[in-house]
């Protein structure tokens, strides 16, 4: 069954979309959309690094994404305007990544594949890495769910209740870096943040509690991954962007439903 490239693509897309949906909820709740953008744009620099030193792509991206996320946490925590710092770093990371890749010898670097993903080319080892990473992200967020929610609501109140908000922030940062590393193959560096944010935002009007929002985001993520794969196959469009398009359409639909109820 895994010999069929469509099956591997479907499993890769499902794994990533479902596993990162709860993390995506935190990205939305904590207003970290640009944080996610900056971190995922840094992935390209990780790709260049990995290719230059002949390291696994997953490892290179993970290290650079984690370094970027930690740098962002450090800078935005120091009273510098978060918005402009994020803007500078998000675009600088992308630009440096593009330039770095151009230095690599040979024509073996498929830049488009890293920018918008190459889900149809997922191999069996890729699939193993993607699922391991996806399960790690899901596990991290599930294990720390209550503490993460408390820290999100109010760092001081969490502290008074015995939760360390800085530790929870680091756990989110780590989960985000793993997400970037496994999702680059599926939707590419440019659209990873979309995969985090859009299903969560689409789930919001359907939810009255954080847990239902996470569950709804997982379902919407799964529907987007499978729907995107089918549509891209039928219309011969790039798969990663098509997945994000389907998620965006679902987002628009749930907002319309919400507006209709109000």
């Amino acid at each position: 069954m895994l010999d069929d490239f469509l099956v591997r693509a479907a499993l890769a897309g499902l794994g990533v979309a479902v596993a990162v949906a709860p993390l995506g909820c935190f990205v939305v709740w904590r207003r970290m959309a640009y944080f996610g953008d900056a971190t995922s744009h840094a992935a390209l620099l990780g790709v260049a690094l990995a290719l230059a030193f002949d390291l696994p792509i997953f490892g290179g991206v993970l290290v650079i994404a984690l370094a970027m996320a930690l740098l962002l946490t450090l800078l935005t925590g120091k009273g510098v305007s978060g918005d402009s710092i994020l803007g500078v770093l998000a675009h600088a990371a992308l630009a440096f990544g593009l330039v770095a890749v151009s230095f690599l010898p040979g024509v073996r670097v498929d830049l488009m594949g890293y920018l918008v993903g190459d889900i149809l080319a997922v191999s069996k080892p890729d699939l193993a890495v993607i699922w391991a990473g996806a399960l790690a992200v899901l596990g991290l967020v599930a294990a720390r769910w209550s503490a993460l929610l408390s820290a999100t609501l109010s760092p001081d109140m969490a502290r008074a209740a015995g939760v360390d908000p800085q530790k929870e922030q680091f756990i989110l940062t780590l989960a985000l870096a793993i997400t970037v590393a496994v999702a680059i193959k599926v939707v590419g560096a440019l659209l990873i943040a979309a995969l985090l944010i859009i299903p969560a935002a689409a789930a919001r009007p359907l939810s009255r509690a954080p847990e239902t929002m996470a569950a709804a985001a997982m379902i919407i993520g799964a529907a987007s991954a499978l729907g995107g794969l089918l549509v891209s196959f039928a219309l011969d469009t790039p798969t990663g962007p098509t997945i994000v398009c389907i998620a965006a359409v679902i987002f628009a639909l749930t907002r319309v439903v919400q507006a209709g109820r109000a």
Binding site: V28, R30, R31, S150, T152, L153, R208, A209, P210
Partner: peptide, 15 residues
């Protein structure tokens, strides 16, 4: 944040 759905009961169940 308005993006975070939270009932009073759920809020009291944290952490």
């Amino acid at each position: 944040d308005p993006s975070l759905p939270m009932t009073v009961a759920r809020f009291l169940n944290l952490p």
